[in-house]
Design a protein around this nucleic acid. Structure first.
Length: 525
RNA sequence: GGCCUCAUCGUCUAGUGGUCAGGACGCCAGAUUCUCAUUCUGGUAACAAGGGUUCGACUCCCUUUGAGGCCA
């Protein structure tokens, strides 16, 4: 709790409309779940104080940055509902700006060219560590004469540009007040002469960030805890360049199950993967915000708008949080149950189509020009049987499985039997408890007889239930409906778990229901 | 190796000197039920350790331990 006072003081300085925050992802991979959460916190803070949220693409690493990844990042941010107000700015398009600053630093002797070789540096490092000193750069090239520099350059010696940390800045300590952690102190001399550019055209991370944040008038930098150690370097650069210092807030990290920073090693870090698996954006948002933030009471379900209202830095946790997928599943299931059937059906359809269970048929209908000329109304057919299936019937199917879904993608596995011509299941599946084959057959025969008598127009789940339950009263099933209903359910679905048999029979229709029962009889004998 | 950060149930967390240490997910059990799921009820489970400060520490201070991050 130390530094708490300072923190609230800092927060008082926040004035609506002046806030400018940013995220600066590198397009060297798809949108990372950690980046998404950082974005969320930036977004919430910006929206809460009516500020601006800026997207900046850090694509200085030309080798690993791609347009595709940038696209993935933008697409998935939009999908999550985290739209930026400004940008995207690209660092690759701003080289001129950085160059000017590097030249300025060089000219003012706040930076210098270092010609030491990698081997030399490593040797030095090892030596310093062996005698128990911090492994900092010696500063050997700090005071090279112009003539020496010229000579080295003339020989084409490779070099990097280092920050000259020997000069006087106020005090030996770099101190800043983190909005989440309070006061954080660093010893300036322990920072050494860190590298700021590989060449005039290749500035390094710490420099670029400082320049960009200044140019973009960023007021608050909200980023991951992994950047804490970069902060004093950036502050040093701000001081030397006489730039205003933004406020900092370092978020706790999202951890993998092994408690290390969530990374590609932990296989599922791409937001697109969750999207494909059938997680809803609102669920992901809700889950991510709970990883490191809470409203100080027991509420757990939050929409984006409500989060904007509720968000505070006080609610942010300091310790890292392990990414716990079972809670995500639970939240996702919750949001799925909140969906209207129409909406949920629209969300599930792509999965059924992708797996080839259902195909869309596009019919173009003519309308008078006043109504737009023509519209395309998709209808659907079952791939295996070429039967038409309208949206309402699809809705009925989805409706049965709404409360069973944790992820949209599961709809395929759950409902495929509706779309199959033939079911494949072992005979044993038809057996309820200790039933003999003969008894199973009797139950199925009885079903055939009773159901066969029901007229098409009375073929509704409600009717079927009433009639079948009346039937149950007689015979062995009177004590345990399973003797009649289990074989029925298996005959219709081929699965050991499913929705209720009456509802399924209704959707299947009389003909298919009787056909499947007949097939079950064939299996049993 | 140096510097920095962090530390409450398995996991996410509430708790700011006096609480039977609360909630959620998970797990277990029960109710509903042909199965599964939903829903409801109940249960399981935590203050890293050691010193202080104090009448009293999960809470404040120190040390240790552990975990993580950054640096090359």
């Amino acid at each position: 709790m130390k530094g708490n006072l300072k923190r609230s003081e800092a927060l008082k300085l926040i004035r609506p409309g002046e806030i400018r925050v940013r995220i600066a992802p590198s397009p060297t991979g798809p949108l990372h779940i950690g980046t998404a959460r950082t974005t969320l916190f930036n977004y919430l803070f910006a929206k809460k104080y009516k500020g601006s949220f800026i997207l900046r693409i850090e694509d200085t690493d030309i080798g690993r940055s791609t347009k595709e990844f940038e696209e993935d990042i933008k697409q998935n941010l939009k999908w999550l509902g985290l739209e930026w107000d400004e940008g995207p700015y690209r660092q690759s398009e701003r080289k001129e700006i950085y160059r000017k600053y590097i030249e300025k630093l060089l000219k003012e002797k706040s930076a210098y060219c270092c010609f030491c070789s990698k081997e030399e540096l490593e040797e030095q490092r090892q030596y310093k560590m062996s005698i128990g000193e911090p492994p900092l750069y010696s500063g050997k090239c700090r005071n090279l004469t112009p003539a020496q520099i010229k000579k080295n350059l003339g020989q084409g010696k490779p070099f990097i540009i280092r920050f000259n940390n020997s000069q006087k800045t106020d005090g030996e300590k770099i101190i800043f007040n983190d909005l989440i952690r309070g006061k954080i102190e660093f010893n300036k001399t322990l920072l050494g002469d860190f590298a700021i550019a590989k060449s005039l055209d290749a500035p390094l991370y710490n420099l670029v960030v400082v320049i960009d944040d200044f140019k973009m008038k960023i007021t608050h930098i909200i980023r991951g805890e992994d950047h804490i150690s970069n902060t004093p370097k950036q502050i040093l650069l701000q001081k030397v360049l006489k730039l205003p210092q933004p406020k900092y807030a370092h978020l706790p990290l999202i951890l993998g199950p092994d408690k290390s920073k969530l990374s590609k090693r932990h296989n599922t870090v791409a937001v697109s993967k969750y999207r494909k698996d059938g997680y809803l954006p609102e669920a992901l948002i809700n889950f991510m915000v709970l990883l490191g933030w809470n409203p100080k009471d027991n509420r757990e379900i939050f929409s984006l708008p409500s989060l904007i209202k509720e968000f505070t830095f006080e609610g942010i946790q300091k310790a890292g949080a392990i990414f716990n997928i079972s809670k995500l599943d639970w939240i996702n299931g919750f949001y799925i149950r909140q969906k209207s059937i129409k909406k949920l059906t629209e969300l599930c359809l792509p999965y059924l189509i992708e797996k080839g269970l259902v195909e869309p048929i596009f019919k173009t209908e003519q309308y008078p020009p006043a109504y737009g000329g023509k519209i395309i109304t998709p209808s659907y057919q079952i791939s295996e049987t070429r039967e038409n299936i309208n949206f309402e019937n699809l809705e009925k199917i989805i409706n049965l499985y709404q409360e069973r879904l944790k992820k949209l993608s599961e709809i395929v596995e759950l409902t495929d039997f509706f779309f199959r011509l033939k079911l494949n299941y072992p005979k044993e599946l038809l057996r309820w408890k200790d039933m003999t084959d003969k008894e199973i057959k009797e139950s199925l025969d009885k079903l055939t007889k009773v159901l066969g008598k029901i007229k098409e127009k009375n073929w509704t789940a409600l009717n079927l239930e009433e009639i079948l339950l009346k039937e149950v009263k007689a015979g062995r099933a009177s004590k345990d409906r399973g003797y009649l209903l289990w074989p029925l359910r298996v005959a219709l679905t081929g699965k050991k778990t499913s929705a209720g048999p009456f509802e399924i029979a209704e959707i299947l229709g009389k003909e298919k229901t009787l056909k499947r029962i007949k097939e079950a009889i064939n299996i049993i004998i």
